[in-house]
């Protein structure tokens, strides 16, 4: 099928840390993608990310059959054709990529979820983290600030550690205080970086219910692959990553939009 005759839809996932946009064809393939940091003015961020994804897909936004939105500020996209909750989008987006029922762990900027996905790409159940342990992605950003490195270097720092210093608090805010305490006690920045990354994995394992096959998606594994390594050592089943994990929900939103087009 030529690009001209293919129906294209966009998906935009407006998260607390990043806005992700994709353009997906009606064959399910991702044609363009873009990510932009979330700033206060969500609509502008979404517009920027969508424009970049369309550019990447070499398509005109006006040619899109629809726009699906999901995530923290999905209501802010005025011209969306469909808005769907992020766990359903994660489920469908991941299923599109891996084509099998799965236990899916979404680790984004806000609240991680374990989502069970059936053989049609539907969420059959989901469990989140307790309220006072929300904001794991943001927590890693705070940690980077306390350790005086850009967030992109936190992983590099952790990779240089010989051992992890445990960071055990449930609460992202308390954990930040714990980071400072460990520094005062003489722990190295590398050890703390690794400890913080491992603490994310520990909180997720506490949600429980992992069954093989287990996949992970979300921006945290893209930016902080140490979380994946820690999860692999704790999960008790093999852990795989959905391709392009940061875009999973955006892909799901685009597919929802295409599906809506089929029934309308």
């Amino acid at each position: 099928m030529s690009q001209e005759s293919m129906k294209l839809a966009a998906g935009i996932d407006i998260g607390t840390e990043c806005v992700k946009a994709v353009v997906v064809g009606d064959d399910g393939r991702v044609r363009g993608r873009a990510v932009a940091p979330t700033r206060g003015y969500f609509q502008t961020c979404a517009h920027e990310a969508l424009a970049s994804a369309c550019e990447d897909a070499q398509t005109d936004p006006a040619a899109l059959a629809g726009i699906g939105t999901t995530g923290f500020a999905m209501e802010c996209v005025a011209n969306a054709s469909v808005r769907v909750g992020d766990s359903s989008c994660h489920a469908l987006g991941a299923f599109q990529q891996v084509a099998e029922p799965m236990t899916l762990v979404d680790i984004g900027g806000r609240d991680p979820h374990v989502i069970w996905v059936d053989d049609l790409g539907r969420r059959t159940d989901a469990r989140g983290i307790r309220r006072c342990a929300l904001g794991v992605g943001s927590f890693l950003m705070f940690t980077a600030r306390h350790l005086d490195v850009p967030p992109s270097r936190l992983q590099e720092l952790a990779a240089a550690a010989e051992r992890a210093v445990p960071v055990s608090s449930y609460c992202s805010v308390f954990s930040a205080g714990e980071v400072l305490e460990r520094l005062r006690e003489g722990a190295t920045r590398e050890e703390i970086a690794l400890g913080c990354i491992q603490s994310i994995a520990e909180r997720i394992v506490e949600i429980g219910g992992f069954r093989d096959p287990l996949y992970v998606c979300g921006g945290v594994v893209d930016y902080f692959p140490g979380v994946l390594t820690a999860l692999q050592s704790l999960a008790g089943v093999p852990v795989r990553v959905v391709p392009d994990p940061i875009y999973t929900a955006a892909v799901g939103a685009a597919l929802m939009s295409l599906r809506q087009g089929e029934v309308s």
Partner: peptide
Amino acid sequence: VSDEQMRTNVEGFIEQIADA
């Protein structure tokens, strides 16, 4: 109470029931 967490969870839960 986290309004956003509550909304996200309710939304996903009802979508799950609807999908089934």
